[in-house]
């Protein structure tokens, strides 16, 4: 009994020790964020306060326009609270973003045009389709590169070059080209998403398929194994750990690609569209909540891949 308790206590201690630094960092970030809200929003807050009849240190929005925000903030402590509660702040306070996130995910019906779940799903579906296309394409390219010298010499430079082109520049062209042949919506976005995610898969898989040692390949030769036998029994299983590393990078890139694909066309649905309409109408709280939704979605997707990775590698006898 005592041993069990000691073990549990030790585990508890360990958790506290792990959680504490994380919480400290989060607290510091939130502290800086709240602090930044005051000078960032003080001018708007003062204008609104003046309109409501309050007296402020320097009357008149025009007079205040070129004044130091920090100076104004220090001169008007009474308006600090207002800087955290503006409808269209320059920098929304953390709790404003949190409330907006809550309202647009949990409280809105998911069929609503203002539900982040609805917009998130639009982006997620393009992300997953693009990720699937990018992964399959990347693996096929890697297999070709590893087995054909001509492909090794010719494909890799193009693959690298493709990633040096800013996706923001190429995305509108893909949308326009597909639109002209009558393809709209999901597919063009998925293609932009695949364009970003295939690259890490190619690089990782080429390395993975080449990871068997010279000894292992010699061993195959002594058994008279064909190229395809070596591929299925040695190269492919050896590449699995490399593949998962690439997939984690790839899925995050896919999400980015899907969002970028929503920007240039003035899309009305998707997380990209929320970012876009938010900036059209100065809805900073909407922009920030869409940004956070994106980050949470990306973290979730990477966590899912990491989970599959852990289970797969354990079952394959790795990691011991």
């Amino acid at each position: 009994m005592r041993i069990v308790c000691a073990k549990d206590c030790a585990r508890g201690m360990l958790m506290i020790r792990n959680v504490f630094p994380v919480l400290t960092v989060v607290a510091v970030i939130f502290g800086i964020w709240y602090l930044a809200c005051v000078p960032m929003n003080i001018k708007t807050a003062l204008t609104e306060a003046e309109r409501a009849g309050a007296t402020v240190s320097t009357p008149g929005a025009r007079e205040r326009r070129d004044m130091s925000a920090i100076g104004l903030a220090l001169a008007n402590p009474a308006q600090w609270r207002d800087t955290f509660a503006l409808k269209k702040p320059r920098l929304p306070a953390p709790h404003q973003v949190a409330v907006e996130l809550w309202q647009t995910t949990v409280e809105k019906k998911i069929t609503s045009k203002r539900s982040l779940v609805f917009h998130g799903w639009i982006t997620l579906s393009a992300t997953l389709l693009g990720f699937a296309m990018g992964t399959v394409g990347g693996i096929l390219l890697a297999v070709g590169i590893v087995h054909s010298r001509a492909m090794d010499m010719s494909v890799m430079p193009w693959a690298i070059a493709s990633q040096t082109i800013p996706v923001l520049a190429i995305a509108p062209m893909i949308i326009v080209v597909f639109n002209s042949i009558g393809v709209q919506g999901l597919i063009p976005k998925a293609i932009i998403s695949a364009y970003l995610s295939f690259f890490p898969v190619v690089v990782g898989m080429v390395k993975g398929l080449r990871s068997p040692s010279a000894m292992q390949l010699d061993q195959m030769r002594t058994w008279g194994a064909s190229k395809s036998q070596s591929f299925w029994t040695l190269r492919l299983p050896s590449s699995v750990p490399y593949l998962f590393t690439s997939l984690k990078v790839g899925i995050a890139a896919s999400l980015l690609g899907a969002i970028v694909g929503e920007l240039p066309t003035g899309a009305i649905r998707g997380l990209g569209a929320r970012l876009l309409t938010g900036s059209y109408y100065g809805q900073t709280i909407q922009i920030w909540s869409a940004l956070f939704a994106t980050a949470i979605l990306a973290a979730g997707l990477v966590a899912v891949i990491a989970g599959i990775e852990r289970v797969t590698l354990k079952r394959m006898g790795y990691g011991k």
């Binding site: 040692s213 000894m215 292992q216 010699d218 061993q219 002594t222 029994t233 040695l234 299983p237 699995v240 394959m316 006898g317 790795y318 011991k320």
Partner: peptide
């Protein structure tokens, strides 16, 4: 042929 390392496949 037996090599210096066992070279067993972990999977």
């Amino acid at each position: 042929y037996v090599f210096q390392a066992a070279g067993l496949y972990p999977w």
